[in-house]
């Protein structure tokens, strides 16, 4: 208390109260300087602590930008507080500043929006570096989350930069945010194959794969009696970290295991029935036996050599469509 009284006595003494320029006293100048020094100290403390807090969360360049913005922001506020001690007429400056502020505000609208979105993204963390995410229609692996934008690359290795505002306001599908994820296959076998045996084989295969999770367990069942075969739905869970590797290997393992057991993936097939006129129309006649169908198809699927052009007699001219003149 006595210090405050002493300080006020010092500032009210004749040396500090005497005007040095217009009505400005030495005391006013001293207050101006003291407030600026205090603003610098406060700005330093806040920016330093912020820098420590965000050190592991924000890139170094962005961190520098943020701390500098905070530092100069606080200094500017201190400057405005200190300014009334000096006989500066700010009315003209305020009008000009207001107009300038509006122009800057319009020009920097998206920049500020991206900045604010970037700060919220850093704290909310809907995506992390290395995550596999779908942002609108762009599927990327996140490589960096910056203050204005997020950088990623597509699976083809193409560089993608997405403004943070867009990420913040759009739907993000993060494929690896959860610990585990499910994937599924449709495995089709022929009607003559034993579906329950196929299910047993697939379940055993999943059981032997370490990364197909025990809990939640797999689900293998007959899903559809389709046109060409029996559809077996196979669902399994895997750790998000490795799910793609498992997803790409398990289907072939299932196919090989089923084939090893004599089962086949069915081809599309049709059985034709014919009613010849000379026979009783009520008794349809099977043209091919069922086993024959695949054989016939195999034959028709074989690559055919182009038909040899027949040697026509000289008197006959091969007709290859209308000539250009005929078209006219």
């Amino acid at each position: 208390m006595s210090d405050i009284i002493n300080t006020s006595i010092i500032f009210e003494s004749s040396i500090f109260a005497a005007p040095v320029y217009g009505e400005t006293t030495l005391g006013n100048i001293l207050w101006f300087i003291i407030i600026l020094i205090l603003a610098v100290i406060i700005a330093k403390i806040i920016s330093l602590n912020l820098s420590r807090f965000l050190k592991d969360r924000v890139r170094k360049n962005d961190l520098n930008l943020i701390t500098k913005a905070i530092y100069w922001g606080i200094f500017f506020i201190g400057f405005l507080i200190a300014l009334p001690n000096l006989p500066v007429d700010l009315s003209g400056l305020l009008v000009a500043g207001g107009v300038f502020g509006i122009i800057i505000g319009f020009a920097a609208q998206s920049v500020v929006s991206n900045l604010i979105s970037g700060i919220f993204l850093i704290f909310e963390q809907p995506l992390k570096i290395g995550d596999n995410v779908l942002i609108e229609d762009t599927l990327i692996i996140v490589e960096d989350i910056r203050i204005f934008s997020t950088i990623g690359k597509t699976f083809e290795g193409i560089y993608v930069r997405i403004p943070n505002e867009k990420i913040f306001t759009t739907t993000i599908t993060n494929y690896v945010a959860n610990t585990a994820r499910r994937f599924e296959y449709d495995v089709e076998i022929r009607y003559q194959d034993d579906a329950s045996r196929a299910i047993q084989i697939i379940e055993a295969l999943i059981e032997n794969e370490p990364f197909c999770l025990k809990n939640p367990g797999p689900s293998v069942f007959v899903d559809e009696l389709a046109a060409d075969g029996v559809m077996i739905k196979t669902r399994m869970w895997a750790p998000s970290e490795v799910w793609w590797d498992i997803r790409t290997t398990m289907l072939w393992k299932i196919k090989c295991a089923l084939e090893e057991d004599g089962m086949e993936i069915p081809f599309p097939q049709r059985t034709l029935w014919l009613n010849p006129d000379d026979e009783d129309p009520s008794t349809p006649k099977l043209i091919h036996k069922k086993d024959h169908v695949a054989e016939v198809r195999m034959h028709t699927c074989k690559p055919q050599h182009p038909a040899q052009e027949k040697n026509l007699p000289n008197s006959i001219i091969a007709y290859n469509g209308p000539d250009e003149s005929d078209k006219d």
Binding site: T179, A180, P210, L213, K214, N215
Partner: peptide
């Protein structure tokens, strides 16, 4: 020894475990 993994807890907040 045969290897197997499992999930303890929900897929959204649980942990992968060696089972």
């Amino acid at each position: 020894c045969p290897q197997k993994y499992s999930l303890y807890g929900p897929s959204g907040g649980g942990v992968i475990t060696k089972y």
